[in-house]
């Protein structure tokens, strides 16, 4: 520390010290989009946890007064069976959000593992894994997922399973290319020349540099997962009635298009949650960029230590 203290003018030193101590904790969420994303996501998480307490009505309770427009008693109106749409939207967050997270976790883990294996082992193993990835991504995700759920039978579990099989190639491809390119990086070669085995270099040098981009990718694809799950439910292949689910609520709502509230409110729910995850993913990209001033925990991105040789 003393050398820097001596070398930096007081004003810069102050800024440097302050940035090291405080700005790291202060600034990473300060970007507006990140802030919006985090706020919306936090609201949805709270809603998902406390949905039964927040919901004004039983989401499954039917009423003969069907398809009522939004009113004081039913702020979002009621659906074709007279169920309160607000309550259903809130309770559906408990189903949709954890499922999306589960889907991303499963597909991300599977894809990352296969990508690392493909990039590290190479040869025919690499060829096999990547041709499989090609095979699964040759079809539109939702179409392939439909085939899988149709053959396994429509249920929430099968929908997740189907979407895992169609989304893992995204992660596998990115991870494989990262492993290959970082594996060739000069700092990895230097590490090897110090006597590290390829496996040790993989764990110590390559994988830590892969994890950042993967977390960003996973967060952005969380939005995608939400939409895909909603899409499958919309097609009747995901969560089955009467369990409230955003996608299936929209699906039913489109049959009653004159009652705009039936599809609009679950649609807004999906929209806001997906948007929030996208914003967070974008923000995380900056956090994980070691070049950015936000990520490293120190401000002096381009500033270098002044020193006398």
């Amino acid at each position: 520390m003393s050398a820097v203290d001596a070398a930096l003018p007081p004003s810069r030193l102050r800024r440097f010290k302050r940035s090291r101590s405080r700005s790291a904790a202060r600034s990473w969420w300060r970007q507006p989009t990140m802030l919006i994303g985090l706020t919306i996501a936090a609201i949805w998480i709270v809603v998902a946890i406390f949905a039964p307490l927040l919901a004004p009505h039983d989401p499954l309770a039917q009423d003969f007064a069907i398809t009522q427009a939004p009113s004081g008693a039913h702020p979002f109106g009621t659906d074709e069976l007279g169920r309160d749409i607000l309550s259903r939207v809130l309770v559906a967050a408990r189903n949709s959000l954890p499922l999306a997270v589960l889907l991303v976790l499963c597909a991300g883990t599977l894809g990352t593992t296969l990508g690392v294996v493909a990039g590290y082992v190479g040869g025919w193993v690499d060829g096999l894994i990547m041709r499989l990835a090609d095979l699964f991504s040759a079809f539109p995700a939702i179409v392939l997922a439909m085939v899988v759920t149709a053959s396994l039978g429509p249920s929430t579990r099968n929908a997740v399973l189907a979407l895992v099989t169609v989304t893992w190639p995204i992660y596998a491809r990115v991870v494989r290319s990262l492993v290959l390119s970082i594996g060739q990086a000069e700092y990895v070669q230097a590490f090897r020349l110090h006597g590290a085995s390829a496996r040790r270099a993989m764990w110590k040098e390559v994988l830590p540099n892969v994890m950042g981009p993967i977390i960003v990718l996973a967060t952005i694809y969380l939005a995608d997962a939400l939409l895909l799950l909603a899409g499958l439910s919309f097609l009747g292949l995901g969560t089955q009635p009467p369990t409230p689910e955003w996608g299936s609520m929209i699906s039913v709502g489109t049959q009653y298009f004159q009652n705009w509230w039936m599809a609009t409110f679950p649609g807004l729910a999906i929209f806001s949650a997906a948007l929030a995850f996208n914003f967070i993913g974008d923000g995380l990209r900056d956090v994980f960029d070691p070049q950015s001033q936000i990520g490293s925990g120190a401000r002096g991105g381009s500033e270098s230590v002044e020193e006398d040789a």
Binding site: M1, S2, A3, V4, P290, S296, S304, V305, E307, D308
Partner: peptide
């Protein structure tokens, strides 16, 4: 190599 000890606590991008 003529660098101060506190260089150890930094990341590569903080150097010229």
């Amino acid at each position: 190599v003529g660098l101060p000890a506190n260089a150890a606590d930094r990341f590569a991008h903080q150097f010229s």
